[in-house]
Design a protein around this nucleic acid. Structure first.
Lengths: 338, 338
DNA sequence: CCGAGATGTCGAACCGGTTCGAAGAATGCG
DNA sequence: CGCATTCTTCGAACCGGTTCGACATCTCGG
């Protein structure tokens, strides 16, 4: 059931079958029909490895995603799904590569063994050797997020600085003067995670501009950590009336902490942050948040990557998204005001 | 930078390089060292396509997962992560294949084009033509869940019948007499989703055995649908005091509905179901639930698949898991009792 | 000292496609 | 009618590995 078999049954040469399928040279209408008929009868499909070997393209893209040690967030899930779908629309398959402790091994596999035509990198760091490395080799890659010097590279990302700043403004406009910031965990900050750092910057600057009193926290990626973090916030400054968070996985815990402390949202305390819309609606009251457009990010990343694969020398492109804040029910006027 | 180049620089033939790497024939210690040195200097890694073509194995497994139209659940995310990790441990890569509207196209690609050595199928249906099809071809596959006639196939799954029955018993022991069941959406039931059907069966049988009054509902996979569903439950039988759910994505909405109706969990109303542990802890109060061991399921699936790939004629194996119910804080004695 | 067996290496064939150059047939034009 | 052009098809080479059979060399026992 290979191309030779098809050729034999159709009474033509292997190359003719190949041309009949690819259309790269003209083939008589009659021959084409005969070949097609044999193919349909046998249900033949060309072997992907052989094809990849011959023309140097695998029609596969690599998705380098965080290891399970990090707790996954809903946003990441939506993102992966949309990448796979967008890739399928462009006739690409998606190969997953966990970037982790032995990131080298898995990552090298993808590139050096030429398993993929290009890669999408999640969880970018401000200083990211993976990006540097890919840049040197001019390997087609698109980052989700941007490094400290993103000039030469292709990326799509959120403007976390602007988003957290918008959250601060929103709260300040409601009269809140003492606000906490709940970031991702310590180790991700130390590793230089882009979103955590830029989000923190945006928060800090906007708060300074508005003259607010703030405290910033790092919080583990799960509900118990969120609860604990909230307890700390109220302990260290009981007059805090609002918080901004980037930590989707801790959100449920933050809510729980507030409930246990007897603070009602949004009457006594406002909560907002950067969270994918679908997940912002799972908490009660639904979270007012900058909705992470995970689906759009995935689609754009694939489109950029496909373009880059097709035009290896094209100038770098990128998309910086700044989704608006969706007003739901978790923020309100500061207590004692209005 | 191919094997011929290595051979030339090391002053040996291509086959010798191959044997030096694979160890399938003896190579003198000195030659091996020289070859290895050249390889290290050049950072050579054998081309995956060429290797796959030559020995007929891609070292890749396919993960057939639900299309984005279905809303993903946290459990699925954890599962995918653990599959990727377990696969990496066995030196396999993971190729994602969305099974959806054009499932044929993507699915056929995987198999007929020999992109993968085996496949893991998520979201099994009681009657599943994908499974039948793979069975006929004796293609190495492992199902997550079991079909109506699972005898000939390899699978790992949860005993949803036993799990929902256990939930019912738990509630009955607490004195609840009127219980609702919140299932997955209508269209998934019509499609024959295994977990939805078996879960429903287990619930119904256990309730009948205990002589309980029950109602069953189908609920969309998101928070607003959950909220709406809960409103319906209380409207159609205001004396309902507990519910069992399989619908992780609707959980937040169910909780919200209860809060809006002024029913306090667990004082006025108990909630339980089958939900991955990490996600059961995001709601307040934390959900008493049969914890879906997503990580274990992924690991076991990969192990079975790797074994099956290695031994094409081995007898079918499977794992049926029945995780215990983790007592958290969402269930309590029926109101008016003790 | 000779033959058997083990050891190390090589060339060639093969996996299943794609693509190039060339050749034969058909067609068009002067 | 002859020559140039186009259309159609074929064979061969190639992509980059693996593997088989053969051959040369070395080792050891009788």
């Amino acid at each position: 059931m290979n191309i030779g078999e098809i050729a034999r049954r159709a009474g033509v040469s292997r190359s003719t079958v190949s041309y009949a399928l690819s259309g790269k040279r003209s083939v008589s209408e009659e021959t084409r029909r005969r070949v097609q008929q044999v193919i349909d009868e046998l249900g033949y499909r060309p072997n992907a490895s052989a094809r990849a070997l011959a023309n140097g393209r695998t029609n596969t893209i690599g998705l380098v995603f965080p290891p399970a040690g990090n707790h996954y967030t809903g946003m990441q899930l939506d993102f992966i799904g949309s990448v796979v779908e967008a890739a399928a629309a462009h006739d690409y398959d998606v190969l997953l590569s966990p970037s982790g402790a032995d990131s080298d091994r898995s990552f090298q596999r993808l590139l050096a063994e030429r398993r993929v035509d290009g890669a999408i990198l999640m969880e970018i760091r401000l200083q990211d050797d993976r990006v540097d490395h890919l840049g040197e080799e001019n390997f087609p890659a698109v980052c989700i997020g941007r490094t400290a010097q993103p000039e030469g590279s292709w990326w799509v990302g959120l403007d976390h600085t602007a988003l957290t700043a918008a959250c601060v403004s929103h709260l300040a406009d409601l009269g809140h003067r003492r606000i906490a910031f709940v970031n991702r965990p310590e180790h991700l900050l130390r590793a230089g995670y882009e979103s955590a750092h830029r989000g923190l910057d945006g928060f800090t600057e906007a708060a300074a501009e508005r003259g607010l009193t703030v405290r910033t926290y790092r919080c583990g990626d799960d509900a118990p950590a969120g609860q604990e973090c909230l307890e700390r916030i109220l302990r260290e400054d009981p007059d805090t009336t609002a918080l901004v968070t980037l930590n989707e996985a801790a959100l449920g815990g933050l809510y729980r902490g507030l409930a246990m402390a007897g603070r009602q949202i949004p009457r006594d305390f406002s909560v907002t942050g950067v969270v994918a819309g679908r997940w912002a609606e799972t908490v009660t009251p639904p979270l007012t948040a900058a909705d992470v457009p995970a689906e759009q990010l995935g689609r754009l990343a694939v489109e950029l990557l496909v373009e880059r694969i097709g035009h290896p020398d094209a100038a770098p492109r990128h998309h910086l998204l700044t989704p608006p804040i969706s007003l739901r029910a978790s923020t309100g006027p500061a207590p004692g005001r209005r």
